[in-house]
């Protein structure tokens, strides 16, 4: 409400001869900002009630004991950090997120370049085909991966045998399973990178390449000195955003391995689900999730900085 006065200063500073007009303007401005707040109210209620409040509630929950009666301070966090199985979760989450994002970004970059070479109507069809993995609900497509990896019916193994190779237990050993979840995540996420990079590629002015061609630049030089610098921002923000989403990933690991074999593929989210929902230890589950918080907050800080800078540039 207080803002209505500042707005009126702007509107009425022309020294309107009739003070009556200033009064009605003030009323108008006040009504305007009340309406504005009212229109935002559902959004604010939703965000505060079901996003901000649960975040703080999680911090409170994580400091309780299993029965949620006694306050135990940071005991849950200390306990988790000392457990080898949780140390594995930290390792696996970092390995999963970093490897998958690097692979998605690289693959997306290559795909975007190939796609960029194809112009016109054809591009739409190819792009549509490559977007299919990203369009199917992840939990359903992960099921089909699981069926492809199935120990006794695996179609991959049938193909390997047909070429004369040994069968591979795709989800049976630690490293195979780790690679498998990364592959599925890459398969799902690479198309997103592709469309982001494709849009960025399209926005690079063609004259730059023409000028470089006249100067005798090779394809490699064009990539290093034109494409990459022009796409720097979008690469950065997509990678940061994807790191957040991949760190917090749940569906793939839950369906494909459910953390196995021997808890070696658990991510923060799936481990929190096992501890918090399935074993019923809500406080400890909350503390598992909260381990993601500092990582995500750091990444979010950089994303936000970039987005704000960008929106300022656009608005001016």
């Amino acid at each position: 409400m207080a803002d209505s006065s500042t707005m009126v200063i702007g509107a009425g500073s022309a020294k309107a001869p009739a003070s009556r007009r200033v009064g009605s303007l003030k009323k108008l401005a006040r009504r305007r900002s009340t309406t504005a707040l009212l229109l935002c109210a559902p959004l604010i209620v939703l965000i505060v009630g079901l996003k901000v409040y649960p975040t703080f509630y999680a911090i409170f929950l994580s400091m309780l004991d299993r029965k949620m009666e006694n306050f135990v301070g940071l005991n849950n966090f200390v306990y988790l950090l000392n457990r080898p199985s949780f140390q594995l979760v930290i390792f696996q989450s970092c390995l999963f997120a970093i490897t998958a994002v690097v692979m998605k970004a690289t693959l997306g970059f290559i795909l975007a370049h190939l796609m960029h070479n194809i112009r016109g109507k054809n591009q739409r069809i190819w792009r549509g085909l490559l977007l299919v993995p990203w369009v199917i609900p992840l939990s359903l497509s992960t099921l089909s991966w699981w069926w492809l990896f199935d120990p006794s019916y695996s179609a991959f193994n049938w193909t390997l045998n047909w070429f004369g190779f040994e069968s591979i237990p795709f989800l049976g050993t630690t490293w195979n399973a780790r690679i498998a979840v990364i592959v599925v995540n890459t398969w799902f996420g690479a198309p997103f990178f592709m469309i982001m990079y494709l849009a960025a590629l399209k926005s690079v002015p063609e004259q730059l390449y023409e000028a470089a061609a006249i100067d005798g630049a090779s394809a490699w030089q064009k990539l290093i000195f034109i494409t990459l610098p022009m796409m720097r921002n979008i690469i950065l923000i997509t990678v940061l955003y994807s790191l957040i989403v991949t760190f917090a990933d749940f569906d793939i690991v839950r369906i494909l391995t459910n953390g196995g074999p021997q808890d070696s593929t658990h991510l923060f989210a799936t481990y929190a689900f096992n501890v918090g929902i399935e074993s019923g230890n809500i406080p400890r589950g909350a503390s598992v999730s909260l381990f993601m918080f500092p990582i995500l907050a750091t990444l979010a800080f950089f994303v936000l900085r970039d987005v704000l800078k960008r929106s300022k540039e656009i608005s001016t």
């Binding site: 965000i47 649960p54 509630y57 923060f268 918080f293 979010a300």
Partner: peptide, 29 residues
């Protein structure tokens, strides 16, 4: 209105809070 910039930034920030961070406290809610 006053604070509308804060709200738009806040909205974007909450977009970056993943469901896997909130599902346990939300279980209680």
């Amino acid at each position: 209105f006053k604070g509308s910039h804060v709200i738009s930034t806040g909205v974007f920030l909450t977009y970056l809070v993943p469901p896997s961070l909130l599902f346990i406290p939300l279980f209680q809610v």
